[in-house]
């Protein structure tokens, strides 16, 4: 087995890739919080896999020096969760936008949380489609005006944390890109959680979302204190439904439950990838066809 590599400097996680995000984009804060979390948790970058879908923020795997997979729009979760099944020794972290995770890929979100893979999912939620230059998203508020909704979005925004909770999530948190220190703690808690962790990270889009700005968030966010018990599912539901005048940040819900990998007898001794694939004896199977 490979010796664990421990990074000496946060900068060791930097790559040579040129970041293509707008100055002021909330993604910069999320990326910094993620790198700090990986560094502080002493994750071996060679044993860490960062998977994204498609969207502005999905360039992230190219910007962090860990193994990466930049997949298809909406499909990061099935790719990543199968990676976890194939090699459950890897730390698997998924990152992608609100359109990616709550729109086109929402069926995978529902099922990934239900299965409770030991995977961390960071959603860069900016309530707008940025890469295609400003259309409404599943988390856009009713009335949100974009070029695709000139009369304003007709449907109300979805409540992703409530959806995930109803689907059987075991870890739910919300963080804000303007508070990197807090976001880092949320990501660390998510990675340390044994099970599927969804961290909804609020991220102002300075170019295409003129409504949900840094100022808009500063006026609404507050951190959950000791009055909230993350093991209280009912309270978590109530919290997951809160959006508008006040937006709570912190751990909404936490539950200990066996992971999907725990239940797979095939990998109870060693990862699937460590199994030999040569000289498979099929004779016992064929006997049943005689």
């Amino acid at each position: 087995m490979k010796k664990l590599k421990v990074l000496q400097n946060l900068g060791d996680l930097n790559t040579a890739a040129k970041c293509n995000w707008c100055p002021g984009c909330g993604d910069h804060g999320i990326l910094m919080a993620l790198k700090q979390a990986i560094f502080e948790l002493k994750l071996d970058p060679e044993e860490t896999m960062l998977v994204s879908g498609i969207g502005c923020g999905s360039q992230a795997p190219h910007l962090v020096k860990v193994y990466g997979f930049h997949s298809l729009h909406g499909r990061a979760l099935p790719v990543a969760t199968a990676m976890k099944m194939a090699n459950h020794k890897m730390n698997v972290i998924v990152i992608g936008g609100d359109g990616d995770g709550y729109g086109i890929g929402v069926a995978h979100l529902v099922n990934a949380v239900r299965r409770n893979f030991n995977v961390t999912y960071i959603v860069q939620n900016n309530q707008v489609y940025g890469l295609t230059k400003g259309q409404t998203s599943p988390t856009s508020a009713k009335g949100f005006r974009t070029k695709s909704t000139p009369g304003g979005a007709i449907e109300p925004e979805m409540k992703p944390l409530a959806l995930a909770l109803a689907s059987g999530a075991t870890f739910l948190a919300r963080a804000y890109a303007g508070d990197i220190a807090h976001m880092k703690e949320m990501i660390k808690a998510g990675i340390e959680h044994r099970g599927f962790a969804l961290i909804d990270t609020l991220q102002p889009c300075v170019t295409f979302n003129k409504v949900n700005t840094y100022q808009w968030f500063q006026e609404r966010i507050y951190k959950l204190g000791e009055e909230h018990d993350p093991s209280d599912r009912g309270a978590a539901f109530a919290l997951a439904d809160v959006w508008g005048a006040k937006i709570p940040l912190g751990v909404y819900y936490r539950e200990e439950r066996a992971t999907y990998e725990d239940e797979l007898s095939m990998i109870s001794e060693k990862p699937l990838v460590a199994h030999d694939n040569a000289a498979v004896d099929i004779e016992p199977i064929l006997k049943s066809y005689l």
Partner: peptide
């Protein structure tokens, strides 16, 4: 997508 994810890690899928 799962088959591709698992294969990427090195198992026949």
């Amino acid at each position: 997508n799962m088959a591709i994810g698992a294969s990427h890690m090195g198992v026949r899928s």
